[in-house]
């Protein structure tokens, strides 16, 4: 499996990473190097093996339904790029 420049552009777009034309080829070649390494996996027959998502086989712990958080908006928004009237501002959202 080898990525084309078009693939790289598509993935970059999906990941919201601006990719300059000059970087695209270098990125493609490095990604293909990594995918080649990864490709070794395909040689192994894993039929019947259950996928492993977590190192520990335990059940999700549940929290009681209680309000434990207090308003910390001012602390949180101190590090925000742009806010107004308690809202985070972003370029106009068009649905």
């Amino acid at each position: 499996m080898s990525l084309s420049l078009e693939d790289v552009r598509k993935i970059s777009s999906l990941a919201r990473l601006d990719l300059s034309e000059s970087d695209a080829e270098a990125t493609r070649s490095k990604l293909n190097g990594i995918l080649e390494l990864v490709e070794q996996m395909q040689a192994i027959d894993t039929s019947g093996v259950e996928p492993m998502s977590h190192p520990q086989d335990v059940a999700q712990r549940l929290r009681d339904d209680a309000v434990t958080e207090t308003d910390r908006r001012d602390d949180f928004q101190r590090v925000a790029p742009q806010t107004e009237a308690g809202l985070y501002l972003v370029p106009k959202v068009i649905e």
Binding site: M41, I44, T46, E50, P51, M52
Partner: peptide, 15 residues
């Protein structure tokens, strides 16, 4: 399936 799931299966084999 080819990548993520296969890798998770290998993860189990390694464990």
């Amino acid at each position: 399936d080819a990548y993520y799931l296969q890798a998770q299966k290998l993860r189990r084999l390694i464990a």
